[in-house]
Design a protein around this nucleic acid. Structure first.
Lengths: 230, 230
DNA sequence: GGAATGCAGAGAGCGGTGCTCTCTATTCGT
DNA sequence: ACGAATAGAGAGCACCGCTCTCTGCATTCC
């Protein structure tokens, strides 16, 4: 049993090392990851790599899950490091953490939030890790609501069918959160994603030198929209 | 000269036909467009295609420009069809037109706003067409400002270096627009892109059946943030 | 302890890709 | 009518994902 576990352990290490090499390739060559190149880098022949990952998509999936978890962890520790009674401070901490992570890992960010690879369908394993950043945002609002520092907008602003949809989402990942507030935090999450994507993919770079200030101002606008107290 | 123009014309038709076939392939197979497959579809051998497009990236660039122009035209006609004195109506018309176009041409939208192809750098030809949608949004605000229906936010909310950046952008594509208002329309444009991308790339689909209502509500929130009169 | 089993890796090979080079036939300009 | 430019065909290079077979070696079982 211990003898069997040593083989299992070396196998797990192999899986990790392949992922690490693949991540390095991802950073330099972008999303068109080549199994053969990874194998070459490890001194193996490409067919040997199929003992560990049955296909290129499976390796990609492993990288995606890892990246989601890394982003989620970065966001969560940033939130935990902020004053828990200051919703706006937490909001900005989380936004900045997401941006910093994306700037530090552009290829992995593109893997997560870029256009999906044509033949590739993300398996359900990725669903949980993908939810970690928005769940953190929801947590900020829930705490703010409980502390009386955040007030829910008028629910009348939502058309009925939409309110039902949002209620269902709230029941799943944001129990107790008013639908109108959920809609606003979703707006904030969408904006955060859009901001990072534009900065990373677009050509804002040359025309907007003070990107950090721009980012902070835009997230401030969204904090106002959500209703976080100043 | 007319004799030369007939050869030139048949060449132009060839360029267009290749683009059309490529666009069809794009719609079905996604972004991993294959030159050989396109050539096969046209009854040619792949090397012959290189007489028209020197590389796969050049063909992609042609498709990208075409797509930018199609989206820009859709957005512009939607804006022109709305009551010019109603900023909010124009805003919603433009947002819906962009979403409709994206839903009708998902692969082309992904080409424009998805993660960039690793080796590919967008040439400057794409810069002008890419600006058409945000320029339309800016036009709405400028007209609203001139008609006194939109008021500029307090410029104090902008830190100084950011204001200088925004002033430069305004000078280039939005002359006369106050910097703080430019910042808000950029927020709206970012949000619009984020909304469409999430709907197209993400997995909102199964959990949010009433997507059109959700989209309208989110764009309404942004119209409020920008300060468009109800 | 020795045999049976399972697994890691190597190698060859298939069909696909982007792209280059050479060659031929047709068409254009003069 | 003749030289030049052009379109297309074909072969070929290096790469890709993936499959199959075969060989050593470690593990497991009796």
């Amino acid at each position: 049993m211990s003898a069997s576990s040593i083989r299992a352990r070396v196998r797990a290490e192999m899986l990790d090392e392949i992922k690490a090499v693949a991540r390095r390739h991802l950073a330099t060559d972008g999303a068109n990851l080549s199994l053969r190149a990874v194998a070459r880098d490890m001194g193996m022949v490409s067919s040997a790599l199929y003992r560990y990952y049955p296909s290129r998509d499976d390796l990609l999936t492993a990288l995606i899950i890892e990246a989601y978890d890394a982003l989620g962890a970065a966001v969560e520790t940033a939130d935990a490091g902020a004053d828990q009674l200051d919703p706006r401070g937490r909001w900005h901490a989380v936004c900045r953490a997401a941006r910093d992570w994306a700037l530090a890992h552009p290829a992995e960010y593109a893997l997560l939030y870029g256009s999906p690879v044509p033949g590739y369908a993300a398996p359900d394993d990725t669903l949980g890790p993908a939810l970690r950043p928005p769940v953190v945002l929801i947590g900020i609002l829930r705490d703010g609501l409980a502390a009386g520092r955040v007030t829910a907008p008028d629910p009348e602003e939502l058309p009925e069918p939409l309110r039902a949809d949002l209620a269902e989402i709230a029941a799943a990942i944001a129990p107790g959160l008013p639908e109108a507030l959920l809609a606003r935090v979703m707006a904030g999450w969408t904006q955060l994603f859009g901001l990072i994507s534009f900065e990373l993919f677009g050509r804002i770079k040359r025309t907007l030198p003070h990107r950090a200030e721009y980012f902070d101002h835009q997230t401030t606008l969204m904090a106002d929209l959500i209703g976080l107290p100043r």
